[in-house]
Simulated assay, not measured.
Amino acid sequence: MRVWSLHPRYLDQKGLVACWRETLLAQKVLLGETKGYRNHPQLIRFRAQPDPVASVGAYLRGIHDEAVARGYNFDEGKIVSRSPAERIDVTEGQLAFEAAHLRAKLEVRDPARRATLPQLPGPHPLFRVVPGGVEDWEKV
């Protein structure tokens, strides 16, 4: 499971679709509707929020907005919560780590998109960038 901290505009088609599907799975986990992935480290930052389901809903809306901008047909009805969510801090180190991870994927899947990826891409709209290294929950 990869719930990217990077803005979804940087993801290629496969990455955006995978992020949508994996975040829908994360939503199910947070709702207690599945037994798998309950302890996945990618969910720590959502669980730490006052309303984890609202936070994952806000994340999914960001993915959905990018899909709509590209002309994709993601089912917005799958987003359970429409409640507003507080922004979540993400460190510069985490963004840099994810950017390197995405560069490696794009090198194989979409070299043209890789060439346009900034050195430090911006965050998903749910996240606010703060100083710091790679997040403790990240598997390095």
Rank of each mutant, 00 (worst) to 15 (best):
Q42F: 08
S83M: 10
A67H: 03
E98Q: 12
T116V: 12
P123L: 07
R61S: 04
P118E: 02
L43G: 07
Q49C: 10
R103D: 04
E98F: 06
A48F: 07
H101T: 11
H101G: 06
E98L: 02
S81E: 05
D75F: 06
P125H: 10
L117K: 05
H64V: 04
T34K: 03
R45W: 09
D89W: 08
L117E: 08
Q42T: 12
V90A: 01
A85W: 05
E33A: 13
Q42C: 10
R82G: 13
R47D: 01
A99H: 05
L102F: 06
E86Q: 14
L106W: 00
P118H: 04
K78P: 02
E33P: 01
V108D: 14
G32M: 01
A85V: 01
F97A: 14
P84Y: 09
K105C: 03
L60E: 09
L117P: 10
E98G: 02
R82A: 15
L106T: 02
R109W: 07
E86L: 14
E92D: 05
F46R: 02
F74W: 06
H101P: 00
V90W: 00
Q49N: 08
R45F: 09
Q49Y: 08
V56F: 00
R47M: 04
G62F: 09
R114G: 13
V108K: 15
T91K: 04
E66C: 13
A58N: 10
V68D: 12
V129E: 00
A54Y: 05
A112R: 08
P41G: 03
R87H: 12
A96C: 11
T116A: 14
I88D: 02
Q94I: 09
R45Q: 12
V108P: 05
S55V: 09
E107P: 01
R47L: 06
I79C: 00
Q119M: 11
F46N: 02
A85I: 00
G36A: 15
P84D: 13
V80C: 04
N73F: 11
H124I: 05
A112M: 03
P125A: 02
V130F: 03
A115W: 02
P121C: 01
V80S: 10
R70W: 11
N39G: 14
A112F: 02
E98N: 03
G71M: 04
P125M: 04
